[in-house]
Design a binder for these strands. Sequence first.
DNA 1: CAGCTCATCGACGGATTGTT
DNA 2: AACAATCCGTCGATGAGCTG
Length: 290
Amino acid sequence: MASLDGFRVFVAVYRTGSVSGAARERHLTQPAVSAQLAALEARVGEPLFTRTPRGVVPTERGKLLYAQVADSVDRLALADQGLRRPGRSVLTPLRLGMTPEVLHGLALPRVARLDRALHVTFGPDRDVLAALGAGTLDAALVTTAPEGRHLSAQEVAPVPYALIGPAGWRADVPDTLADLAAWLNARSWVSYSVELPITRRFFTGVLGARFAARQALVAPDLRAVVRAVALGLGASVVPAYAAQEALDAAQVAELWPVHALIPAARWSVVVRTADEERADLLALVAALKR
DNA sequence: CAGCTCATCGACGGATTGTT
DNA sequence: AACAATCCGTCGATGAGCTG
């Protein structure tokens, strides 16, 4: 049987992209790591990495093996830490990045049943994608497509939008879509950002009119936006999940069913391409797709 | 082309394990 | 307890390939 140390060395080589890097990480010398790797490759019967002058590149067999063992090696590492520091969880926390709204409205109900400790870091899409690239997160839940080949996205759910307003406005909403733009422009608006990308797309693309409503509040927090709508500050277009609780509680009203009119956002799980086949991340994607 | 990084090889040593 | 075998590590040398 291949040694557990061999697998730990293999994972270290895979992640650092070099034998010497893995040696530093494992507190071994370069030849020692090279020997461990050679032993594992002999055991597997084929090369796990292609050697290059600037490091090593995993072969298809290497990628497959990594997907099979990486999670277990991480768990072993944490179990080992737990032995040295009693009281810590033996489960490696999965490190996720997203906005508070995504956690609250979308992710939490779906990941609650995952048999895995989770550590969530809040931040806008740009920041959590940067943290993912830097290796301080395992996955990011975003609606922005990542740039570069080292990150890969898997869409887990479309995010439809809802046009909401204060509950008292519902009775006055015009009957036809043609009258809706003028009606909304005569009122105030609450938004997540000053750029209003979704709102402007809704007005110009769906209503065929320029957005001209008075902006009563701009706050980069969807829960604050929905709360402001409930308090009567104005109408807004928000992701439906963010408004669902307030709609159910009749704190806000859906002014028009726009979910079929505004293309849904693409909500995706982004992981490092090297981790694409990791069993725990595949389980995360499966849980989020439910 | 020199300097650098990186992987690999052979020689050797220490620790552990098995045998007598 | 003593010895041999084995394992796994380090050290030093070497060769390949990239870069300025």
